[in-house]
């Protein structure tokens, strides 16, 4: 019940992000979601793509440093308060949220939250018990 996120090290220098997106487009890889976290000197780009195996492979080939992390993709209704309920559940269960970002899809009219927590299993159990739906990798590809 997790999805694969690819994180890439980006030096803070003009053109590095462009170099990365060029690699993805040249290999026909489609991004579902993207988040960029940065400091003064470097950034960490996190992406959810349709083909994570291929993306990780071609990025490494191109000289990028990347890692694959399993994260949660939570489907929430695209209405006010949808995400609030989910974070309340995590908080009540003592699960720390390291970072999160969101994307929406046209197809299903849903919003998806990507959640990075320390303990995926505990988070899955808590969220499922509270009635939330978690998306798996295969489903994500079809979105």
């Amino acid at each position: 019940m997790t999805v694969k996120q690819i994180s890439v090290f980006l030096e803070n220098r003009p053109g590095t992000l462009a170099a990365l997106t060029d690699v993805l487009s040249a290999n026909q890889i489609d991004m579902r979601a993207l988040s960029l976290s940065d400091t003064a000197d470097f950034g960490v780009l996190r992406i959810i793509v349709d083909d994570s195996y291929k993306a990780a492979f071609v990025l490494k080939e191109a000289g990028f440093i990347c890692s694959v992390t399993r994260v949660l993709a939570l489907a929430v209704s695209d209405t006010p308060g949808g995400f609030a309920k989910a974070v309340t559940v995590l908080g009540k269960n003592g699960i720390n949220l390291e970072y999160a970002y969101a994307f929406t899809t046209k197809k299903r009219g849903l919003a998806y939250m990507i959640l990075r927590v320390a303990d995926n299993d505990a988070a899955i159990a808590a969220l499922t018990a509270a009635g939330f739906t978690l998306t798996c990798q295969d489903e994500l590809v079809e979105l």
Binding site: S7, S37, I65, S67
Partner: peptide
């Protein structure tokens, strides 16, 4: 130079 071993998806871990 950053290495695969040092890299993490968490910015704070790198920091």
């Amino acid at each position: 130079e950053m290495t695969p071993e040092m890299f993490s998806d968490s910015v704070s871990a790198i920091a």
